[in-house]
Simulated assay, not measured.
Amino acid sequence: MYITDSACISPQRTFDDAFFEGDIKVHEGDRYMAIEPAYGQLIPAGLLRRMGKAVRMGVGAGLPLIRKAPIEGIILGTANGGLEDCLKFLNQIVDYNEGTLTPTNFVQSTPNAVAGNLALMSKTTGYNATHVHKGLAFEAALLDTMLLLEEKRGKQFLVGSIEEISDYNHNIDLLAGSFKRGYFTSENLLKLDSPGSANGEGTAMFVVNAGRPEQAIAQIRDVFQSNNLIEKELPQVVTAFLQRNGLQATDIDAVIMGISGDNRTDHWYFNLQKALFGAANCHTYKNMVGDYPTASAFATWMGAQMIAGKRIPAACVWTQKNTRTPKHIMIYNHYKASQHGLILLGS
């Protein structure tokens, strides 16, 4: 399937071209908060005031795309989208002794609130689904969309992901050892030999088409996901994934790896790069946006822009072997070394 348009809101200024012009935000600490655009002309003030952050970002990225291109369905992936409103609602049950509660937090407390709001605001009555599969939610959304296009259930869909940092969930993950301790910044996140990473959030939305229209930015050729990989089997799995698409590891111009700075799990990326992709450019992105379950959506957005000819910032370059515009990009990301996703992009 082909990407014809995209939008991204992230801890970097990605809602315009500032990110590719070298305007990089340096984050401190273990929370990389999203830099949001002005929503005033897009969302009515009364509605905007009642929106939770996940809904606000999802609508802010998705609605402009829908208004530019008619779509036949909305497919999103998330792990924690709507969680902040969910916990606010649960706390209200206690605070008000199960009395009369405000409906806003309840309405926006479920993961499908973003897809629902997008459908209502754009009057899209077609297929609407939200995949909540933790670290593979975005990959599941892509596979769902590919199946819909293959079954000719429609020609054009909106697919994407949404994630927000919830105070409650962040603290639970912090106690579990998911984030680094002490003072650090996004500039040295990947260089610290210590456990944990930094938390991130954001949304990436794509308009995808079954055929290759003139305005196509890039092609999502294939997606793979697994919950039970053994590290020594990863190179064989990746090789088989490429072979079923008629490619070899040497055909890949660039790889985008989910290197997070966590010394307990980053060896998955380093060993795969050494085994298969020594001749390809290697790029990172979690030092830009943090680590979160659907971070691979940002990698997909960044990879599509690279294929379209955009020059990514030097801070995203891990190793550079060539300077040509990539034709084939391989994205590999894992979530806590338990959920593994591969996405193959082409020109």
Rank of each mutant, 00 (worst) to 15 (best):
E28P: 03
A61T: 04
Q339G: 09
G290A: 13
V238R: 00
Q215D: 15
I74N: 00
E187W: 05
A176Y: 15
R56N: 04
F277G: 05
D251F: 06
V317P: 00
V255M: 14
Q12R: 03
I35L: 12
T185L: 13
G116Q: 13
V59C: 10
M51L: 11
H328A: 15
K134I: 14
R50Q: 10
W318P: 01
L158W: 00
D291H: 11
A7P: 01
Y168K: 09
Q215F: 12
F224G: 09
W301R: 04
P70Q: 11
N245K: 08
S10I: 11
A113S: 13
E139D: 10
K123V: 05
Y332H: 15
A7I: 01
A129P: 01
I71K: 00
A61V: 06
D95F: 05
V207R: 00
K155G: 13
R212M: 13
Q243N: 13
T203W: 00
T125Q: 10
A119R: 02
K327N: 14
F270Y: 13
A61I: 04
L342T: 02
L342Q: 01
I35D: 07
P235G: 08
G73E: 07
I3F: 04
A141T: 09
A295R: 01
S260Q: 05
G246D: 07
A297K: 00
N171I: 14
V114I: 10
Q41P: 03
G77N: 05
P111E: 08
F157G: 01
V114L: 12
H340E: 08
T125G: 10
S296L: 15
L247G: 08
G196W: 00
L158D: 01
N188H: 09
W268F: 14
Q225G: 14
S296V: 15
S197T: 15
A249R: 02
T300G: 12
T78R: 03
Q41N: 10
Q41Y: 03
T124F: 06
F15D: 06
R56Y: 03
K88S: 07
R264V: 15
R264M: 15
D222N: 12
P44N: 08
Q225A: 09
K155N: 13
A115W: 02
D144A: 06
N117S: 09
A337D: 07
T145V: 07
